[in-house]
Write a protein that binds this DNA or RNA. Structure first.
Length: 985
DNA sequence: GAGCACTGC
């Protein structure tokens, strides 16, 4: 059969038992089902019976006691051993290598004018090319950076020939029937009527805010107004407009739309550029639509934006980290570029805030046009449906355990009553609603999401209202799946008259496209969606919107240093956007499932992204732009992130050795800031290049930071999970599955059957395609940086060790360290897992390891940890102790209970023979030095020299680590994909 | 037993 877990288990189990008997090492862990007994005795030996806590502890102290206890019982957990053969090999290797780690450091005489302290610190760097670039970045500041950028040659030079050519072309274009036909349409847009005012305002001011709702035409028209006006005035050669969009799709579709309106093809006066895809426009008299992230990249090499005459930032009301960052940076650029015109485009709601931020710059409003939408609230919906909420939970039997939960509930319920009573008294006096509605509203359960109520409301609309599609907004995928099932299983929605679509980002795109189709007459379309239908996906024929009033939002909880994904009440801006979705083709109706009273307490806008995410990447961006100390810069952002968030992200960057204690970029940090990846995965790909393990490691890095390609096909979840498990190659690793998915996809492509492969394994073709392109991009970067011979990630020289799965996992581990979790025991319902920071965590149900009944090692590394209904590790790889030693810097040799241990930061320690510990550490130190050297002297590895020997030694160690666990490490590339990984017996 | 949505020369 195609899956190998069972065999690994037997091996692992067998070898551990043997060890316990022969060496008298109590490994103290109980991650393996077979080790339950040892766990029992370990607890018993502490003499506290059923693991009780000291009786004097109260409340929180008890929790802390157990947390501490869980942590202390982690060490030492496991033994490191080498087989005599390997040990001898490594010893020989170390002996054959002279002890001169540091090559003579001679000054290069370059970089004059740079701070002597800095110069001294990096004196040992001999690579003059790297040194020059690096020191320039760490020693400069933004003003110098801008000056340098201003001095560089600009593409904007007045040129008579181009000016005239632009005028001629424009005249011809305007006269063409295609243009005239489109003009008729354009003239109807509200924005077109404001043409003169908009142009005048831009003429007179350097910065202008334009506000207007979707449908007013500002996105497609404003750039054209400016361009045509400048062309007519003979300024074609010095007019280049760059216009940013938050999403890739909108950058392309807006560019296409504008080209069509100008009766042109893309590539003439209109172009677009997004990551990995571009259709550039000509070098004069043109408009480039790009993603906001793309502009940020442009700013790295040309912070003064000297190649552009106009900058339009669209959709800035969405408050993405990228647009907030650019808006902040622009404040420094604007005074240096008085001829750069900046146009900020926003929805009406918060446009004043931007105008204020820019010294009260003028704000012009363009009215929008949509059909009127009648709004209803929970009180109305209850009246329509006569729905009754279930009674609030009752008092539990006097059980102490539940008492606390009950009291919390009681408190919440009391707060709710305090909040709702005044409103209920008010509507009671107005007599607008019958008594049963008011009674229902008094029930605190009325604030929770009720799929039953939504089902009733759908029923009500279908029986009492005219035709038109219904769009339902729910917080997440789980609720969407549940409601879809409820509706279909009720039998009230036969396919002859209804068509129900679930809609979220993890559904196969084929299914997503059907949503746009107009159903046959007398068939009603019901779409059950996440907030993806708020902005990203527009379904034209929606007439009825049901707004659950909740959405899931990613936040960074700085108190607990954890990322969360929890359902929250939507903001008024979201609610307005949802309502607008009902009025695109005709007057519509919107049903909010919260009361008018609740609406009064809702936030006006969603929290800006910069206030709810980790800031590592923002900090690296700021560093590469030479913005100096991060705190003052971030304090000047329109809504500054809190100090704790900045502090935590700085700490992580220092732990990763991307920043030094002065908050300056280190050589590693310098590389990481230039790679379009999260710092951890960035580190991973550099290591992948050094260890000649590029193909699988790049696949994993791309999947982790972009998104994995696995779909959630409705109704076939179990089958999809089985397929994923197959791709895991029996390695207890989600990351190996990601690499294998991409490898087989590329293989299937060369055979000409990628579509079949994607369907078979429930993978997204589009995502895999993009991931493949991203891998090529990484290779291009690392080749430019000198870490790779070629820009081809499949180059043989870059993949000498790609078939060594133990090494792939160790490199993943090295990138993700110290994200380590420990399996304490395995029960029937899955593993009991802890992390040093959070205590108990769960493996996410989509993980290969979630159903695992035993693990080859108690250690797991993970990339994503998120608090939702519990703290979940989304992706894990089971890693050997040797893999951890490989990944973790600064291991120390010590003694515990008379035995030698190797300890890593984060309370990880391993029993080890002193002799073994000594050579492992020595080799590890050599690796550490080599990595440091390679970072400051980027270059490819000479495998037959000393540096190659160090890497080979490390590879030997991690491979043996996997053999110890009973895993076969060299099982990669086992022929073609149709010959799936198979058990030889 | 479950993952809002985006993005990177």
């Amino acid at each position: 059969m195609s899956y190998r877990h069972g065999r690994g288990v037997r091996n692992a189990y067998g070898s551990y038992r043997q060890r316990e008997n022969s060496d008298d090492i109590n490994d103290g862990s109980s991650y393996n089902a077979g080790n339950r007994q040892s766990r029992g005795s370990a607890q018993g030996s502490r003499g506290r019976g059923r693991g009780g806590h000291p009786p004097w502890l109260k409340g929180k102290e008890i929790g802390l006691y157990y947390k501490k206890k869980a942590q202390s019982s982690q060490q030492p957990t496991h033994a490191i051993r080498l087989n005599p053969h390997t040990e001898r090999k490594i010893k020989n290797l170390l002996e054959s290598m002279p002890n001169t780690n540091f090559r003579p450091a001679s000054g290069t005489g370059m970089c004059d004018g740079i701070d002597s302290k800095l110069k001294a610190r990096y004196d040992h760097i001999n690579d003059s090319h790297f040194k020059k670039n690096f020191l320039e970045i760490v020693s400069g500041d933004i003003q110098q950076n801008l000056t340098k950028s201003m001095l560089a040659k600009s593409k904007l030079v007045q040129n008579d020939t181009y000016d005239k050519r632009a005028i001629e072309e424009h005249k011809e274009r305007v006269a063409s029937p295609g243009y005239q036909k489109m003009l008729k349409f354009r003239e109807k847009l509200p924005a077109f009527k404001m043409r003169r005012q908009v142009l005048e305002l831009i003429e007179k001011n350097q910065v202008v805010v334009i506000s207007g709702e979707t449908g007013c035409g500002k996105t497609t028209q404003v750039a054209q107004f400016i361009l045509d006006d400048q062309i007519e005035r003979g300024n074609g050669s010095v007019t280049k407009i760059i216009c940013t969009q938050p999403r890739r799709i909108s950058a392309i579709s807006v560019a296409e739309r504008v080209a069509t309106e100008r009766a042109e093809r893309l590539g003439c006066s209109v172009g677009f550029q997004i990551r990995l895809e571009k259709e550039l426009c000509r070098d004069y008299a043109s408009i480039l639509f790009c993603t906001t992230g793309m502009l940020l990249q442009f700013l790295h090499s040309n912070p003064a934006l000297t190649d552009w005459s106009h900058l339009i930032l669209d959709e800035i009301h969405e408050r993405s980290t990228e647009s907030d960052f650019i808006i902040t940076l622009l404040k420094q650029i604007i005074p240096r570029r008085p001829n750069l015109k900046v146009i900020l485009m926003s929805a009406t709601l918060n446009s004043d805030q931007f105008s204020k931020y820019y010294n009260n710059c003028p704000n012009i409003h363009i009215p929008g046009f949509t059909y009127p939408v009648q709004e209803y609230y929970l009180e109305d919906v209850l009246q329509f449906t006569r729905f009754k909420f279930p009674p609030p939970p009752e008092m539990p039997n006097n059980h102490r355990k539940h008492m606390k939960r009950y009291k919390n509930q009681q408190k919440k319920s009391d707060d709710f009553l305090d909040f709702i009573q005044p409103y209920l008294r008010h509507i009671e006096s107005e007599r607008k609603y019958p008594q049963f509605v008011i009674d229902q509203l008094r029930n605190p359960v009325s604030e929770d999401l009720s799929l039953e109520l939504i089902a009733e409301l759908v029923h009500f609309i279908c029986t009492n209202e005219g035709p038109g599609a219904i769009l339902i907004f729910l917080p997440g995928m789980t609720d969407i799946t549940k409601l879809t099932r409820m509706l279909l299983e009720s039998g009230e929605y036969p396919s002859s008259r209804f068509i129900v679509y679930p809609l979220h980002s993890r559904l196969p795109t084929v299914d997503q496209k059907l949503v746009f189709e107009r159903p046959p007459d007398r068939v009603r379309k019901i779409i059950i969606a996440t907030s993806i239908a708020e902005t990203s996906i527009t379904i034209e024929d929606v007439v009825f919107v049901i707004d659950s009033g909740k959405m899931k939002l990613n936040k960074f909880d700085t108190d607990n240093n954890i990322e969360t994904l929890l359902p929250e009440p939507v903001s008024l801006a979201n609610a307005k956007q949802r309502r607008g979705r009902a009025g695109r083709v005709q007057p519509g109706k919107c049903y909010h499932l919260y009361t008018k009273a609740r609406e009064m307490t809702m936030d006006e806008y969603p929290l800006p992204e910069m206030l709810r995410t980790r800031l590592e990447q923002v900090i690296l961006q700021a560093k590469i732009l030479q913005l100096g100390k991060i705190t003052p810069f971030l304090a000047s952002v329109i809504d500054p992130p809190n100090a704790k968030a900045v502090e935590l992200s700085l700490q992580l960057l220092m732990t990763l050795n991307a920043l030094d204690e002065d908050e300056q970029l280190t050589p590693l940090g310098y590389h990481l800031a230039k790679i379009p990846l999260d710092p951890r995965t960035g580190k991973m790909i550099i290591l992948g290049a050094i260890f000649s393990c590029v193909e699988p490691v790049f696949s994993i890095a791309a999947s982790l930071t972009y998104k994995d390609a696995f779909y959630c096909p409705l109704g076939k979840e179990a089958e999809a999970q089985k397929r994923k498990l197959e791709l895991g190659l029996g390695q207890y690793s989600d990351h190996i599955a990601l690499a294998e998915a991409l490898r087989r996809f590329e293989e299937a492509k060369t055979r000409g059957s990628p579509g079949f492969f994607c369907r078979q394994y429930f993978l997204s073709w589009n995502t895999l395609k993009l991931l493949t392109d991203m891998k090529n991009q990484f290779a291009k970067y690392l080749c430019e940086m000198n870490f790779l011979h070629s820009a081809n990630p499949n180059d043989e020289r870059a993949n000498k060790n790609s078939n060594n799965l133990a090494l792939v996992k160790a490199l993943v581990c090295a990138g993700l360290f110290p994200n380590v979790a420990i399996v304490k025991s395995v029960r029937r319902h899955g593993a009991s897992v802890v992390t040093p920071q959070d205590g108990k965590v769960k493996l996410h149900p989509s993980s290969i390891n979630e159903k695992c009944q035993s693990f080859p090692s108690p250690y797991l590394v993970y990339f994503t940890k998120q608090l939702s209904s519990a703290i979940y590790l989304h992706d894990t790889t089971s890693i050997s102790p040797m893999g951890l030693i490989f990944a973790g810097p600064n291991s120390k040799i010590g003694e515990q209970n008379g035995k030698c241990v190797m300890a890593l930061p984060g309370a990880l320690s391993f029993l080890c023979e002193p002799e073994t510990a000594f050579i492992v550490q020595k080799l590890r130190a050599k690796l550490e030095w080599l990595l440091g050297y390679k970072i400051t002297h980027p270059g490819t590895i000479k495998w037959d020299s000393d540096e190659g020997a160090v890497l080979k030694g490390m590879i030997e160690l991690v491979s043996q680590g996997d053999e110890e666990m009973g895993l076969e490490s060299r099982t990669y590339h086992v022929g073609f994909a149709n010959e799936t990984y198979s058990d030889s017996d």
